[in-house]
Design a protein around this nucleic acid. Structure first.
Lengths: 227, 227
DNA sequence: ATCCGACGAGAGCGGTGCTCTCGTTCCGGG
DNA sequence: CCCGGAACGAGAGCACCGCTCTCGTCGGAT
């Protein structure tokens, strides 16, 4: 039973965040100005501080929302009925498409950390959503016996988060597979970042074809050969 | 024959750049203040504009210097007499070590682009230095017949820059190898960025061991099996 | 009805990038 | 030699920024 005051406060908070997201999409995180956001919503700049204690907190909200939107895109692109290698490439394609559609948000998520190397703990849960999708694909593939690659214990290399996200309840997934999955994940974001940040300008002519090949190679790296 | 005026100008320009680099290493690119740099070198802020037309130009200088330093580190780590897979892992390790030693500079190079998506053309030549090292390793490996992987034409996928940098004068290197090399390069920087930007916190316990495995997997991806 | 807390607005502080002006200083050509 | 123009450094100033403080106001719970 939220009181009327709490409800209007939540609405205003969301409105501020949405205006900030619009400005982020236009000018980027570095140029995001709290005063400009306040102007857009028709408030005094000082009034915004009633809802977000600082500019960094506003950015944190945008980061969490961004992770959620990207995770949602990945989940929507994943069809559990499809073969594993198709699910892998579909999720990769969705991540790349989302990044290209929201370059500034992607840069905020995976580019240089803005607020002085202090990633709030709230963000990590939202950030792992894409990893959960990937873990589900790996788990299903392992259960279906379509995951290549030999096992091998790698004690002390991975942390609890990786085990939990990447195939927690998946028999047939061992540490070696998790390491390769983590590597494929990093590589996917390295490839998307390189394309988005302009490091492939001049080197890659057909970005779509290059990305398709990259996804295929990375899929093979995990063990998802196109059988 | 540089005149005395030109010489003192070059010295002052270098001094400003060095002070900026010091500040960059401390507070990061986002918080790099031209006025603070001016204070450090004992000048009025307006005087700095005689040497750098804008803050972005100062950052561009730092970017080029950073690419050069990273390229130098990669070149120093490459021993042409060593086996290809050792050269590959040595260069990867040097890149990671440089990134960990200069996190803010690395973020400036490979993080979110700061000056509104406009990468000056001067930076691309400096940026390709690491790629040249990698291309040399691949070329030598191909000439020695130690490069696995089948060929395959991939017309229209790669651009001239990739062909030039990645094994221009190397017989035995075809487009398929170049694509895999480009992918391995992107993946290497994705891995380093994930580690540096905190995306592996909680997922990877032993960062050194994880990176070693990643390098080995990526080496195999290129075709540099540890024979 | 009253009181207290949430709220919005405004002024203000120190900082920023950048521009303009003004006096000085140095270097090269007559 | 000297003198004019170009390079230079400093200062003031503009618009904007994040953030804080204060001060009326208004609404909801007691």
């Amino acid at each position: 039973m939220p009181t009327a005051r709490e409800r209007v406060r939540a609405e205003l908070t969301a409105e501020i965040a949405e205006a900030a997201r619009r400005q982020l999409a236009q000018v980027g995180a570095a140029a995001l100005s709290l005063r400009a956001v306040a102007r857009e919503v028709g408030m005094a700049s000082s009034a915004v501080y009633r809802y977000f204690p600082s500019r960094d907190d506003l950015l944190t909200r945008l980061i969490i929302d961004g992770y959620d939107a990207l995770g949602q895109a990945a989940e929507d692109a994943d069809d559990p009925a499809a073969p594993p290698e198709e699910r892998w490439s579909a999720v990769c394609g969705a991540v790349r498409a989302w990044a290209r559609a929201h370059p500034h948000e992607y840069a905020l998520l995976y580019g240089s950390p803005v607020p002085g190397y202090a990633a709030p703990r709230d963000t990590v849960r939202a950030a792992s959503r894409v990893g959960v999708v990937l873990g589900g694909i790996l788990g299903d593939a392992a259960r279906a016996g379509r995951l290549h690659g030999d096992g091998g214990r790698v004690p002390g290399l991975l942390g609890d988060a990786a085990v939990e996200v990447l195939g927690r309840d998946a028999p047939g997934i061992d540490d070696a597979v998790r390491v390769r999955a983590l590597l494929a994940w990093s590589s996917l974001f390295g490839t998307v970042s390189f394309e988005l940040f302009g490091h492939l300008v001049g080197s890659v002519e057909d970005a779509d074809a290059y990305f398709a090949r990259a996804v295929a190679e990375l899929g093979a790296l995990i063990g998802l050969d196109a059988s």
